[in-house]
Simulated assay, not measured.
Amino acid sequence: MKRQCIKIPKKKGESARRVLLDFEILDNTMKIGSDDTFLYLPLSREPLSHELTGLPEEAELAEFDFEAQAKKPTPGDLLGFNPDYELIGDIALLEDPDLDSQKALRIADSLLRAQPNIKTVVKPLTPVIGEFRVREFEVIAGEHRTETIHREYGCRYKVDLSKAYFTPRLSTERSRILSWIKDGDTVVDMFAGVGPYSILIAKSKKPAKVVAIDKNPDAVHYLKENISINSAKNVEAIEGDAREEAKRFAGTADHVIMNLPHSAYEFLDSAVLLTKPGGIIHYYGITPEDDLFESSIKLIREAAEKAGRKIEVLEKKVVRSYAPHQYNICIEAKIL
């Protein structure tokens, strides 16, 4: 099966393999290929530029005809159905909060048996609640903890799930936002959490500055730790209300990220204040299927007009389904 891969001299193969494992882009469903001189390491996706720089200089992108690995039993094979869960670092989060204890234990046991990388299985006891957007959890099986390190696009995020909200389901969206950023831009992440937008941007591009704001002191604690872990030196972490911090950075932002979909609309005046002429607001919302974008665009336009400015809508996107007939959406709006 033809796949994109890293072609590397055999003597450098192990160091390259470890880099790809760390970035989680080595495709373990395929056997590593070889010939007399080179190893061919199969890739699970297109690597980002900063991931390639971590490889030995002899490494190059190539294609190779790989053999599939023998299939190992999956949790679905053991259970007879595919369990619904989210993997954050080495913690599996069961998605159904109404699971009875016996079924939750069965699922947890299958996950631990089939996937050695999973060390803890938890289920939520509450939805995301409060101004800090956190949930309470019960540990079902494995190590009794809610702290982990999650790897994504070559970045590492330390997080305690009970203290700061994090979801890997937005990884593709975070990569999409990255494509909007240019070298030298100033980015303000109004609701930064533990830093998955801010740190990825800082590591993958060359922004002049990334201002990462969050009101949750625990999230900011992990944000600062993640800045250090990832050597993202051009990220400024701020614990505070985004409305107040916007006054300090008024008119400086080329990009304003508003990933607080349930209540971002309450902060639109501050986002407009932050944005320099021609800057872009990346606005997230939760909207019904019969009004995906228009009401949100109206809110953005009204906030801009209040400040004597206009908007140009650059892109409208459904990010994911959120609930029956409700969607998580993103709108890119240029503030003129």
Rank of each mutant, 00 (worst) to 15 (best):
V210Y: 12
A264F: 00
V313Q: 08
I281N: 09
D160Q: 07
K163D: 08
F137I: 05
R156W: 05
H325T: 14
R3H: 12
G76K: 11
R301W: 04
L21C: 11
L273F: 04
S179C: 01
K310M: 14
D291P: 01
A202W: 10
I25A: 13
P47A: 06
G142L: 14
D22Y: 09
H144C: 11
E67W: 08
V121S: 08
K71L: 14
G308W: 00
F23C: 15
Y165W: 09
I88Q: 05
I281H: 13
Q4N: 06
Y197H: 12
S175I: 02
Y265C: 09
T126K: 00
L112I: 02
I118D: 01
T29R: 15
S295T: 07
R151G: 11
E173V: 06
D218E: 12
A164W: 06
T172Y: 11
T146G: 01
A192K: 04
E239Q: 10
I32M: 08
I140P: 04
K7G: 03
L41Q: 06
G54L: 06
D183A: 04
Y40H: 01
I213V: 10
I107P: 02
G13S: 01
C155R: 09
P9F: 00
I335D: 12
P9E: 02
P75I: 07
R301E: 13
R133A: 03
I300Q: 06
L112G: 04
F137K: 00
G89S: 11
Y265L: 14
S49E: 11
P168C: 03
R169T: 00
G195R: 02
K233R: 14
Y157P: 03
G154Y: 05
A333E: 05
K123Y: 03
P9W: 01
H50N: 15
E244D: 14
T53E: 12
A264W: 00
L111R: 00
K103I: 07
V194E: 13
K72M: 04
E95Q: 15
R133K: 04
L170N: 03
H255M: 08
S34H: 15
L178R: 01
A114Y: 13
D214R: 04
D27V: 05
A303F: 05
G240D: 03
G13L: 12
L41E: 12
E245A: 09
E138H: 08
Y153N: 15
D77L: 09
G285K: 00
L26F: 01
K298P: 00
N259V: 01
G142E: 14
A219Q: 08
Y197P: 01
K123R: 10
H262M: 02
L48K: 15
Q69M: 14
Y165P: 06
L274R: 08
K334G: 02
Q69Y: 13
G285Y: 06
N226E: 09
N28A: 10
P207Y: 11
V187K: 03
L178H: 02
I88A: 14
D90G: 02
D36A: 12
A303V: 13
E289Q: 10
S34E: 15
V210L: 05
